[in-house]
Design a protein around this nucleic acid. Structure first.
Lengths: 180, 180
DNA sequence: GGGTAAACGAAGTAATGACTCCGAATATAC
DNA sequence: GTATATTCGGAGTCATTACTTCGTTTACCC
C-alpha cells in the first residue's frame, strides 16, 4: 500500500468518526469533504457505506473494550466498575455514536464489529464480577440486565440533551440500585 | 369537512401510527399503501411529512398522558407509579415509536406535541410526588432524573431486542434504586 | 531523473423519496 | 335526479445520495 493511500485511509476514518458521531445518517459526501479527499477515494477504501459505518463502529467498540480491560486490573474493583459506567454514559451524552455503537453491536453488524462487541461485553463482565466479589455491587445482578442498564442510560443521556447535574443524579439512582 | 375526508384522515393516522411504529424513517408511500389511499390524499391532510410525524407523535404522547392521569387517582400511589413505569418501558420494547416519542417531545416538535409532552411530564410528576408522599419512592429523587431514567430504560429496551425476563430484572434494579 | 503502476478527484448515473398537477369520481344541496 | 364543489389517486417533478467512470496526478523503483 502506498504511503498516500494509508494516509488518506486514516484521514477518512477520523472524519467518519467525527461526522457520524454528530449525525448517524450523514452522507458520504460529508465525510469526504471533512477528510479533504474526493468522494471516490472514500469508496475506494470502503466499497460501501455500510462497510465504512462498520469500520467506525468497530473502532469505537475497540476503544471502549481497551479501556474496560485496562480498568480490570485495578485494585479498587468497585471504583473501576462505577467509573467505567459513568465514563461511558458521560461520553455518550456528547458523542451520539457511542450509544449507537453499543446498541448496534448486538443487533446487526458484521464480523469485525461483532467480535469487538462481544469482547467489550466480556471485559465489562469482568469489571462487574470483580466489583461483586469486592462487595461493591450486589451479587444477584446479572450481566444481561446491568449491560441493558448501561445501554439504556447511554441512550437516554444521548437522546435528551441531559444536563450534567441531572445525568449524575440519574447515575446516582442507578448505582444505589446496584449496591448490595 | 366531507364524511369521506374525515374517514380517510382517520385511516391515515392509524396507518402512520403503525408504520412509523415499526420504522421511524419509513416513506410516505408506505403509509398511503397501508391506509389504502393515494399518496396525494396523505399530503392533502398533512402538508408535509413532518406534520404527519408530529400528529402521530402527539397522539402517542396524549395516550400516555391520559393513562398517567388515570393512575394519578389510585389509592395505591406506589403501585401506580411503578406500574406506569413498567408499562411504558414494556411497550417501548415492542413499539419503537413510544421511546422515540418520549425523546422527541423534549427536543424538536411543534406546538401540539410540545403541549402534550409537557402535560405528560406534569402527569408523571404527579405520580412521582404521590408515590413519594406514600413512602414508596425516596424523597430526594427529582423529576428530572427519574424522567431521564424512564426515557433511558425505554430507549434501552427498544434498541436492543431485550428479552422480557432481562427487562424485568433491569426494572427491578432501577426500582430498588428508587426506593427509600 | 524517467517510467510505470497505483491512487486521486470531478463529473457522471440510477434509485429513492418528498411533494405537485390534473382529470376522474363522489358526496352533498336543491 | 342533477349540478357543483370537494375529494380522490396516479403520473409526474425535483432534490438527494449511494456508487462508477475515466482522464490526471503522484509516489515509488531503477
Amino acid at each position: 500500500m502506498r504511503a498516500d493511500a494509508r494516509d488518506n485511509r486514516a484521514r477518512i476514518m477520523t472524519a467518519a468518526d467525527e461526522v457520524f458521531g454528530r449525525s448517524p445518517n450523514a452522507s458520504t459526501d460529508d465525510v469526504a469533504k471533512l477528510a479533504g479527499v474526493g468522494i471516490a477515494t472514500v469508496f475506494r477504501h470502503f466499497p460501501t457505506k455500510v462497510e465504512l459505518l462498520e469500520a467506525v463502529l468497530t473502532l469505537r467498540l475497540e476503544r471502549l473494550r481497551d479501556r474496560a480491560i485496562e480498568l480490570a486490573d485495578s485494585n479498587q474493583p468497585g471504583a473501576a466498575f462505577f467509573g467505567f459506567f459513568t465514563q461511558v454514559v458521560s461520553e455518550s451524552a456528547s458523542k451520539l455514536a457511542i450509544a449507537e455503537a453499543l446498541t448496534a453491536a448486538g443487533t446487526a453488524a458484521g464480523v469485525d464489529a461483532k467480535k469487538a462487541g462481544s469482547e467489550l461485553r466480556a471485559a465489562f463482565d469482568t469489571l462487574l464480577t470483580r466489583a461483586q466479589e469486592d462487595g461493591a455491587v450486589r451479587r444477584d445482578a446479572g450481566l444481561a440486565e446491568v449491560y441493558a442498564l448501561l445501554i439504556g442510560a447511554s441512550r437516554g443521556a444521548t437522546a435528551v440533551g441531559l444536563e450534567p447535574k441531572v445525568r449524575d443524579r440519574m447515575l446516582g439512582l442507578i448505582f444505589d440500585g446496584l449496591r448490595p
